[in-house]
Design a protein around this nucleic acid. Structure first.
Lengths: 194, 194, 194, 194
DNA sequence: TATGAATGAGCCTTCATTCAT
DNA sequence: AATGAATGAAGGCTCATTCAT
């Protein structure tokens, strides 16, 4: 297991910091190596190339991110509560980690097609989690069944993602977590007066 | 008026094509010049630098994009119909222009902070259009007034943007425009069974 | 006679100003054209290329410079007085024209071999003037005849040139013209106590 | 000590040759790298930028140049003999190194203000050496005390510099070192018949 | 395993000069 | 004579990756 090797984690964490501090394009491999306290060449003992570092960053961090959400939502009774918990966890985890928020919402998007496709592959399990909550809601007759699930998932993910991005670009000046119930209300009830 | 100069348009259009075909990072100025049929140096008679080309591409194309939407929504009677028209126009304009869709949804996001901020400035009028439709809906007692408008706007824009991005990344294999009524339904009524 | 054409003089004078203000390497042809109030292309109706502008600048200005000195020295009776007058005129003309001093002492020296050779050709008449004064001094038994004239001329010109360059590089903070009698004394008597 | 690194010296020496052969403006970094037998990028491990190469060339070579002169003059008994030795060493060192002579007398002068100021800083110790010899001469009552030392130094340096430049521009056709006693005589006794 | 010096391909931008009007 | 838009060659510098130690 490569993440048992201490330098592997060292490099991943250094990469998050360097990218958050310098931006994607100013994050040279040598800068990451320096931050991690290893030689440039050592990076290539653990990662195939620069892109592999970035993919691994996302893989590691998103893995933990999703795991937390899965664990928390599993403790909830119904789909609506699970959705609220997912929103709360999505917001709170990014609010708790300034650097990670910058990297996921801004910097990692400045990548080429190949990298974006790998990021999407990594993101897949999160989308599956959303899908499953929606399916559960439909079965429980809480959520509508007349609109295809992918579309519903796009609304949910798009809303969360846009909300976090706006918050990051506004320099995180307001309380992101406090928005969770309102976002949940919007997603469940829509914009219409009931 | 700089866009009366024929070479200006020539270069803008060439840039859209080149970026869509090669991706942002593989779009050398010389490639754009060649496609436009002008000398490399000519680019710099019309644009300050490479970043200025990209900002101008977005400015021109997004200007037209928003104008079309404003014109079309103004012909509608109430906020709900205006929202549907906005969604239809958003989808149809990007569906009609393959290259533009790739550039706006994928390539232009691979940019540094300075460029992203300029892109956000250009995007601002579109967000204002959404805000105004929401305000109108609230006045007409069609839309809820218990949730802040920026949050509602983020849900709307986030949903549309995520939907288009998914469509582009799925290689535009399904009918985007056909999704408009479902997306409209989702935004207005939410995910709950009424 | 090309210098009867008004634009010719306009361009020459613009060139002196532009070079003095911006330095040799930042003096683009377009900048000179703008300062002269003509189009870029017009420059090439009067000058073969950029180097030709610079040579012409030196030719014009140095022509006047030498003419003034010849006229003034001719009014003197003997070689020693002529030498003093030459030193005074050399210093006073450059002290009177800030821009010209910068151009001749600093900027024009940043040129390639071909240009330097042409500058030397233009400078030749000045060196001849010095040679003639020295010859006259030798004939009048005022100046020594045991050292070759070119060597004496190099001492005279080198001393004057180095003195002016130091004055320019010290931002012309002291009185250059006031140094003339001391320099004259040094050249005639040398560094030895009587 | 950076000049212990073999590539540092390799690049410095290659730069002297390339500049002497091609002139300052035709001396591309890639040409210097090729001559030194290193990759272009290697240059930038040892020098900040192209200008830094030139400054370093002058620093290294002028350092040795001055050191030689200081050592030699220190072996002399009085100021007049020291001055003669300084002139002999100044001439002989440049006569012995064709490329270095071209670089110091012609090419290095084609530089911008920033570079010239750095060159002057490097040249300073040499001017101090001259000043000290003059001061010693004044104390020994060999040299006059009625003219300010900077002016005397300008005469000495200006004469030597002009003499070497003329020799280089005349393609080094005559014996420079042989001129030393005459130049010494001129500087000490001046142009007047005693 | 680890190092870090060395590599070299790659690109944006400038500006002297031309030429159709 | 005059214009000025257009040209396109040229080069300093960066940085991901390699490899001898």
């Amino acid at each position: 297991m490569k993440n048992n090797k201490p330098k592997y984690k060292l490099i991943i964490d250094a990469a998050v910091d360097v990218i958050a501090e310098n931006g994607y394009h100013a994050s040279q491999v040598s800068k990451i190596a320096k931050k991690a306290g290893v030689a440039d060449g050592t990076i290539y003992l653990y990662f195939k190339n620069k892109e592999d570092i970035l993919v691994s960053v996302f893989e590691e961090k998103m893995g933990q991110f999703i795991e937390q959400i899965v664990t928390a939502t599993n403790e909830r009774e119904n789909a609506s509560e699970k959705l609220l918990t997912l929103i709360e966890m999505h917001f709170s985890q990014l609010a708790a980690n300034h650097h990670l928020a910058i990297v996921t919402q801004l910097e990692l998007r400045q990548s080429n097609l190949s990298l974006r496709q790998q990021i999407n592959r990594i993101l897949k399990p999160y989308l599956v989690v959303i899908d499953e909550i929606v399916k559960e809601g439909v079965e429980e007759k809480l959520f509508r069944s007349d609109i295809k699930i992918p579309l519903i998932r796009q609304m949910i993910f798009g809303t969360l993602d846009e909300t976090v991005t706006n918050w990051v670009m506004n320099e995180e000046k307001y309380d992101l977590i406090g928005l969770a119930p309102y976002v949940h209300e919007l997603i469940t009830k829509g914009v219409s007066v009931k």
